Amino acid sequence: MAATTRECLELQLLEMEMLLSMFPNKELVLENPNSILHTRRYLEGIRESLPSIIEFLIFVNVQKSEVKAEMHVSLPHSYPQEEPQVFVRSVALDRQQQNFLNKELVSYIHSLDRGELCISIAAQWLQDNISTYIQNSKQNDEPECEIKEATYTFHRMWIYSHHIYRQELRKKILEYAKRLNLTGFCLTGKPGVICIEGVKEQCEEFWRDIRYPNWKHISCKHSESKEVTGKIDDLRLFNSFEELALTAHGDYGLRNDYHMDLGQFLEYLKQHKSEHIFHILFGVEGKY
């Protein structure tokens, strides 16, 4: 018989206690420091609504090296009956080896029995195997006789959400965009709009990372790509990544149900040669 959500959350708390004892020196960092407390209160009946999912980082030391790897973990409410979402990054890995490593790690987790708590097992697998991928990355970095100018795919994504309010989420969006060298903007409030532009793989990484299972009302409305050799900055419409602070109107009560001034937003798009996106996002032509 499949475990209930309550039973799964109870197991998640047990595993988090075990992991925090295994990594006592800040090797484990919660994305939301209150997620464990909220889960416990839900199980105790103090909270009626489901808590947000538990997300965290585990910093794994690479053997015989000062290099560290970050294992990003997201636990769906139905974990361990459902597989966790796990993704690894390290400055010592090139993009190809990082992709290979993550595919192998996901495959390894998939081979384990469902219902089994597996985060500590995955962390041990990573510690045992990551040095091989790092060594392969170093070999790929060896210079060739003829150096060819790199070719990239420049990519721009227009993402629409019913709303973007939570301070935690807004902070994550800004941090991820900066870390991945993406430019664009985030329009907070209702509706929420995100534009990112940069190297395609980094755009896709951003899109994968900000989506989480309970963010239902979000979609990529439009994307644009172009192959480019050398620098991509000439194709950017935005100089940096910023959070837009536009005029809002509506109910400023507990629900924060306020709408952003779409006339101002249209003017902002026009300033960045993107007014055609207004119709794609909202289904109506922009008017001044």
Rank of each mutant, 00 (worst) to 15 (best):
C220E: 11
I36V: 15
Y258T: 13
S111G: 09
L262A: 00
A122V: 09
D128H: 12
H72T: 06
I277M: 15
V73M: 08
Q271D: 15
N256E: 12
C118H: 08
Y258P: 06
V62L: 05
E144K: 15
Y165L: 09
L50K: 12
R208F: 12
P80M: 10
P80H: 11
M22V: 02
V228D: 02
D261K: 09
N34M: 14
E275T: 10
Y160E: 03
G45C: 08
N256F: 12
Q85V: 03
S274E: 14
K148Y: 13
R41T: 03
G283T: 13
L269K: 05
K226R: 13
F206D: 13
S65Q: 01
K231I: 04
T5S: 09
A177M: 08
L117G: 01
I280Y: 00
L174H: 11
D257C: 11
F100S: 09
W215V: 05
Q264P: 09
E83S: 06
I109A: 06
L30E: 06
K64F: 08
E66W: 05
I277K: 09
L174I: 14
L169C: 00
F100C: 09
C203Q: 02
E104S: 06
Q85D: 14
W158S: 01
G230C: 09
E242F: 01
L117P: 00
D234Y: 07
S161H: 04
N102V: 06
K171N: 12
T229H: 01
Q97I: 08
Y108W: 13
N34R: 14
V284A: 10
V91W: 02
F59W: 14
D233E: 15
Q271V: 03
Q139N: 13
F87E: 13
Q139D: 15
E243L: 08
Q139P: 00
I121M: 07
E31A: 14
S35A: 15
N99F: 03
G263C: 12
V106Q: 11
T132G: 08
C8I: 13
E83P: 02
Q124E: 13
H155A: 13
Y133T: 04
E7Y: 07
Q139C: 03
M1R: 12
D113P: 08
L254N: 03
P51I: 07
F282C: 04
A150M: 06
H217Q: 11
G45Y: 08
A2R: 10
R179M: 13
